[in-house]
Design a protein around this nucleic acid. Structure first.
Lengths: 200, 200, 200, 200
DNA sequence: GATGAATGAGTATTCATTCAT
DNA sequence: TATGAATGAATACTCATTCAT
């Protein structure tokens, strides 16, 4: 951000801009994400927009930041109260529900952010990914199986990418909240983790 | 295509255009896929480009067509000689190898084609997807487990989207040919299919 | 218009654009009525032009509107003070003077507007033509002769098209203000109207 | 023309080009009168077209030539057998019928040729106009009235431009062959000529 | 701080014309 | 002679960004 909003009024303006930009980005995609439309939707002049953001990408970055925060919150939501002593299946259920909830936040926006918007030099996306990966790794470690770090990393990557693929595809089809989808996803995760245990 | 190239000379031109366009699309993405750059890279004038393609999208469509053909060829390559009586693990191995080979074709291009290029009205992409899905379904059915059609469809979708996710992520990381990656992918698929069998 | 100019500055810009466009259209004709030249002549960037007009045709439409207003004003000018009780010859004189004045406004522009510029969907030209026709019809009716509506319509069309033809040709030759031209035009109109009276 | 067609074959080619070009010009107008379409419609390559015509305008000029010949022929057709001793009204009738016939030749083409196609440097159009004017002058002179040359010229111009205006307007409306239109046109011409006589 | 007018480089596409085969 | 492939200048329109008010 070019300039921190100091007054109450400015903070409202910045919020309006990000809010409007989010809608424009989700609806139109990155190619039609134009500053003039953002300003118009926000009920603000282009000039004001450039008062707070150095360029288009910076706005997208702000959107990404806000979205990833929400995604992490959704992920945490169903994860929070898991008893460490609960059986693995219970733990996995919570985890999968969290992932599904996280992807329900704003699917259109998510897709655009992931697939179209170029990564800014100073994006926080890698941090998010690391955090995301950490959770998968924790699940893998908890589930037992070949324990050394490298193996767990590999398994975490396999699992996370497979689950992401499944969830994204479901979101594209509009299937994200179908019970059958949840059942099969649970089966997939548990089968994989169980197999790793057995290899031990 | 607007016009069929008749002379030898023009066939060369059309090839040069598609070749150049493929490089531009893979490198720059759809947003920077400009006809002028394509022409420049192909060492040809814009006019020549429009002599054979009615618009930008038609070029992308030609690229997509060519790419999907190559992908299917790669998929078929390792699948061809599988003995029907071979054990499931053998069958899955072949299948996974085919998928990995298919995604090794031109990963950057593949991502852009799948995520960014808008589907032209006459695209053959849906056909390709159906064919792709069919193979997964065949694998699911062969592996036994709850047999009725709807269940198999759901499982095929889960499996294909998970495998796609895993393979795409690996491609992004440059891991596609790491043996560990193959091992884990096999484990994932076999574990899922095995679990389904057991539920029977 | 795409956007209403709010500030003084922008009103000046819009005027400059329409002014310049009028000159370009009159000089070059519709085929060479290019947005870049308009902007250059107006001393403005193309962008400014598109800030206020959605496309080329809209500029032409604005020109047409302005021109037709001026034409009607000229037509009214000499028509205004005609006494209803005046003899027909006096009435016709005024009318013809009005028509000549109307065509003196900007002949080159007029020709291009009438012959070359395609009619926009929302053009007001038909309204203008109707108004124009109405005046001829009034003249025909006043002059007596076969009175029913259809006959008057036909006569009005004949008269208006003949007068228009004569005036346009004179304008093309640069003869529009030659006294002989006015004399003969008067003769033509009076002779025709007189002949219709006698047929009664 | 760039080159005179010597062989039989070439003459056929040139005819096919002019024929095709005429259709294209009438249908599409000058703005969409493209050499490639002409060649395609003529079933000939663009190269062949440029073998015989130095540029686009030359083709249009050839079309104009042919069209004006046809117009003169139509004009002559009904004029030919007029007895010099016939009453004026008979003579005018023949004349007007000739003019109407002349404008019935190919109205769409005529309009485009007159309004849109720029005059080539070496166009024969002025010759045609002179010839056309001469006939009107003859009619004026025959009809009596103020006799000296200048007066007759002025009257001929007034008459020709008025008649042209009336006929063109009728053609645009599709009224060219309506009997009422012919009646009124006759009335106009006779009234004007009669009035001139009386002024004598 | 806010506004919105102005800028102009950038993009897709067309079409007259040339020239190697 | 005929072909049709190749050329590239020209043209309408968009949109990120700046800056005077």
């Amino acid at each position: 951000m070019r300039k921190a909003p100091r007054q109450q009024r400015s903070r409202v303006t910045v919020d309006a801009i990000v809010e409007a930009a989010t809608r424009v980005l989700a609806r139109r995609g990155w190619a039609r994400f134009t500053t003039n439309e953002i300003a118009a939707v926000a009920g603000v002049s282009v000039g004001s927009l450039y008062q707070y953001f150095p360029d288009k990408l910076a706005i997208a970055e702000a959107i990404r930041q806000r979205h990833l925060d929400e995604v992490l919150a959704a992920l945490n939501g169903s994860d929070a109260d898991v008893d460490a002593s609960a059986p693995l299946s219970r733990r996995v259920e919570r985890f999968v529900d969290g992932v599904i909830a996280a992807h329900s936040v704003d699917q259109a926006l998510h897709r655009v952010l992931v697939d179209e918007v170029p990564l800014a030099a100073r994006s926080t996306y890698p941090e998010f990914e690391a955090e995301y990966q950490r959770r998968y790794r924790a699940l893998v470690v908890e589930s037992g199986g070949p324990g050394d770090g490298a193996d767990a990393d590999i398994a975490a990557r396999m699992l996370s990418s497979a689950v992401e693929g499944a969830v994204h595809a479901a979101a594209r089809r509009g299937d994200l909240d179908a019970p059958a989808m949840r059942t099969e996803l649970l089966r997939l995760v548990l089968a994989y983790l169980g197999d790793r245990q057995r290899t031990d």
